[in-house]
């Protein structure tokens, strides 16, 4: 890999912060009501899992 300039903090934490916010929203949503809210929380809580799967699938071999 070519050496490159250090990334600024927003570039490092942008995606992780978005994943964290989506997770938090999913955790709270399901508390509020059943039905649609539950489905939204399933989608939200899938985001960290899918991010992990995506990272693993595109790993450098």
């Amino acid at each position: 890999m070519k050496p490159r300039a250090p990334l600024p903090l927003p570039a490092i934490f942008g995606i992780p912060a978005a994943i964290a916010l989506v997770t938090a929203a999913g955790l709270v949503t399901a508390l509020l009501d059943d039905g649609l809210e539950d489905a939204l929380s399933w989608a939200a809580l899938s985001v960290p899992v899918l991010a992990a799967v995506w990272s693993w699938r595109k790993r450098e071999r």
Partner: peptide
Amino acid sequence: VVLYAPFMRKLSFGTVRAG
């Protein structure tokens, strides 16, 4: 989380160097 920053200074999100 704090230590994530120095580790990721030159890596894009989700990098896994498995090779």
